[in-house]
């Protein structure tokens, strides 16, 4: 993996989470989450399973509601207004652990659906854009196939292309490689690295520490619904501050 260019970050804020709290029933799943992400910044979130990583990033495009605090995305504060939420989701792409491709549509149709129905692009134009992104994730030849006919790694790359077709300003990744066989992880990570090189604002929940080291500006460690530690990758891996971080790192680095 090659080092993404280190252009100085702009000061423009893309995401701001302020004192965000969330409960599932009586279970306090997010406790006082504060996070600011600037334009072009790349954040890696890690932490033990069940620590609230998915919940936290799903709050950003409001796949999950939160009960206290506020979240501002690209200058707009999240509310419960459906139209506004849909508006924000257009600007925030998301890649899921289990791809969630639409199985009844071809790869190309997966990629053109939202641009044509949400962005109202003409079909021709949407297809051109889709093919461009499919080329970028290196599977233009699969455009006519159905997701069920592709390998896991290919499906995840289609999922990335599908998000990119909406021309989002922010990309959220929720463990994009943890459902993949080892030989396919690399192809997906490479795709994400090229995305990083282009200056995309990214938040990645991942345990791929190699990826974190080369790509991330900051690594965030969550446990028990809290942000325990936050640092530059170099510092984070060499001098973890809290015991919980040390324990976590020793566990994942031993596997």
């Amino acid at each position: 993996m090659n080092e993404p260019s280190s252009v100085p970050l702009s000061e423009q804020e893309m995401i701001r989470m302020e004192k965000v709290h969330k409960w599932y029933g009586t279970f306090h799943v997010l406790k006082d989450i504060n996070l600011t992400v600037r334009k072009g910044e790349r954040i890696v979130v890690c932490g033990p399973s069940g620590s609230g990583k998915s919940t936290a990033i799903r709050c950003i495009n409001r796949l999950e509601e939160f009960q206290r605090g506020r979240i501002v995305v690209d200058g707009q504060e999240l509310s419960s207004d459906v139209k506004q939420v849909e508006q924000i989701r257009r600007e925030v792409g998301m890649v899921f652990q289990h791809f969630n491709l639409f199985p009844h549509l071809t790869v190309l149709e997966n990629c053109t659906l939202a641009p044509t129905w949400v962005r109202k692009l003409p079909r021709r134009q949407a297809e051109d854009i889709a093919m461009r992104y499919l080329e970028r994730v290196k599977i233009p030849e699969q455009a006519g196939k159905y997701p069920g006919q592709l390998s896991g790694g290919q499906q995840q790359r289609v999922a990335i292309a599908r998000s990119l077709c909406m021309n989002p300003k922010i990309m959220l990744f929720d463990e994009p490689t943890s459902a993949l066989d080892p030989e396919m992880i690399k192809e997906v990570l490479e795709t994400m690295v090229t995305l990083a090189e282009d200056g995309m604002t990214m938040i990645c929940v991942t345990h791929e520490m190699g990826f974190a080291k080369t790509v991330a500006h900051r690594v965030i460690f969550m446990d028990g619904g809290e942000i325990i530690e936050e640092n530059e990758p170099e510092e984070f891996f060499t001098h973890p501050q809290s015991d919980r971080t040390k324990l976590f790192l020793s566990q994942i680095l031993h596997n």
């Binding site: 796949l63 459906v82 969630n100 639409f102 129905w117 949400v118 999922a159 998000s163």
Partner: peptide, 15 residues
């Protein structure tokens, strides 16, 4: 996941 993927792309309920 299908509902979530659709929502994440900005599709509304009816679409």
């Amino acid at each position: 996941g299908q509902f979530e993927a659709a929502a994440a792309l900005g599709l509304g309920y009816w679409k």
